[in-house]
Amino acid sequence: MSPVLSVRSLGKAFLDGDVQRAVLEDLDLDLGGGEVLALMGPSGSGKSTLLNLLAGLLRPDAGSIVLTLADGPQILTDLSELKLTRLRRRQIGYVFQFFNLVPTLTVRENVLLPLELNDLAHLAGEALDRLAALGLAERMDDFPGHLSGGERQRTAIARAMAHRPRLVLADEPTGNLDAQTATQVAQRLIGEVRSLSSGLVMATHSEQIADLADRVLRLDKLTA
């Protein structure tokens, strides 16, 4: 299993009034290609913060994050804001609990958006095939407002995988779905990640979803 992600001594604190509150401290983490890591912990334990740090949306206060790419390792913490944005665009796919889709783009356009941003038009056929495989062939020209929760999440998965990212991050991707749909969606996501040999870090409150992962990281035990 080729390494995808390596995190060392990661720390992040936020200012809470006048007090610095540590959310993450001295966190080490490794993830290989095709591997699925489930993040669990109560609200405020730092799951979303860790995902945002891994995506380069937040800067850590301490430690390093290394993403291993085909042309060598990239130390996220050393990159400028613009380079981080470019890296995120090309190498990372993100799935959220809500608001995964641009409401003014159709399902098809949402999925094609990462390809357009990355100049990867040749992957369009594959991306749309994946969308069809996810059961959305008939909904391609619909807007997100007309989709059910499950359909939106499946579209989000198709969009997150469209540009074959090295790392996929999912923040409670099934949080607003019923148990049956949640399991289906999570299985789809994991299946797609494994088929591309990407790494998946998935925050969830559900033990049932966490059981689908290769490993589970409980963040409440890490925080002070």
Partner: peptide, 16 residues
């Protein structure tokens, strides 16, 4: 704003 945050997470630059 949510759409903006989404686009940001997808790697669109401030210029875009």
């Amino acid at each position: 704003q949510p759409a903006r945050r989404l686009l940001h997470s997808m790697g669109t630059t401030p210029l875009e």
